[in-house]
Amino acid sequence: MNKNPEKGLSSSIISGIKYMQENKLNFEGICMLLADQPAIETSYIETMYLLFKRNKLKIIASNYGNSLGVPAIIPKTYFSQLLLIRGDKGAKEFINAKKNSVLCPQWSTNFIDIDTKEDFDIYKKSIQQ
């Protein structure tokens, strides 16, 4: 539970990592997904996971053409750096600052991002066809 959502996107990342640390959960990495991207295919996430299993020190991120972003899997070696993110910044800026440590799946998925009612209406039409 993010008890400080008013502090921006970064507070969700920080809440998740702190929860893992406080509960002594030892994961090799974290997978970040956005709730407003409902069309990400399961097979895409599975491909990311397999890439991460073979490259556990690399960030596995999604390629948007001009930038990298989520969904992404970030290794535990970066957790302390993620805790330093502040404000309304998510993982995208962090990932793009580490491009030399990033691998991406060779194929893409539907990265539709629903931020407005119009986006939602377009998405609903696309799945009703």
Score class of each variant (00 low, 15 high):
N100H: 06
T42G: 11
S67A: 14
V70H: 06
L84H: 08
L51Y: 09
L50Y: 08
G69N: 09
S67K: 15
R54G: 06
Y19Q: 08
K24M: 07
E118V: 00
Q129C: 07
Q21N: 12
D88A: 04
E22V: 04
G8H: 04
N4E: 13
L34Y: 10
P38V: 06
Y78K: 04
N2W: 02
G90Y: 11
K125M: 07
D119C: 08
E93H: 03
Y49R: 15
E93R: 09
Q81T: 02
G16M: 05
I127S: 04
V70K: 09
K7A: 11
P105F: 02
K125Y: 13
N23R: 11
D121R: 04
I40P: 03
T47F: 00
W107Q: 13
L68V: 09
G29L: 08
S126I: 01
T42W: 08
N100C: 03
C104H: 03
I73L: 11
Y44H: 07
I60Q: 05
K76L: 07
K24D: 14
S126V: 01
F120Y: 13
L57S: 13
N26V: 09
Y78E: 05
L51W: 02
A35N: 13
N96P: 06
F52E: 01
M1K: 08
C31H: 06
K18L: 14
L83P: 04
S67T: 13
S43A: 14
A72M: 09
I95C: 12
M20I: 06
T77I: 15
Q21C: 01
A39T: 10
K98T: 09
N66K: 12
I112C: 07
G65I: 12
L51V: 05
T42S: 15
K124C: 13
W107V: 11
E41V: 05
S126G: 05
P5Q: 09
N66T: 10
W107D: 12
I114Q: 02
G8P: 05
Y78D: 05
D36I: 09
P75G: 02
E41Y: 03
S11I: 01
M32H: 11
F120E: 04
L25D: 06
Q21H: 13
K89M: 12
Q128R: 04
A72R: 02
A91H: 03
C104D: 01
I40V: 15
L50H: 09
D115M: 02
P105H: 04
I13Q: 02
P105L: 09
I112E: 04
I30M: 12
I73H: 03
Y44E: 10
W107S: 14
P71A: 09
G29S: 11
E46W: 01
F27T: 05
K24F: 06
S43E: 15
V102Q: 00
L33R: 14
K58H: 14
K18M: 09
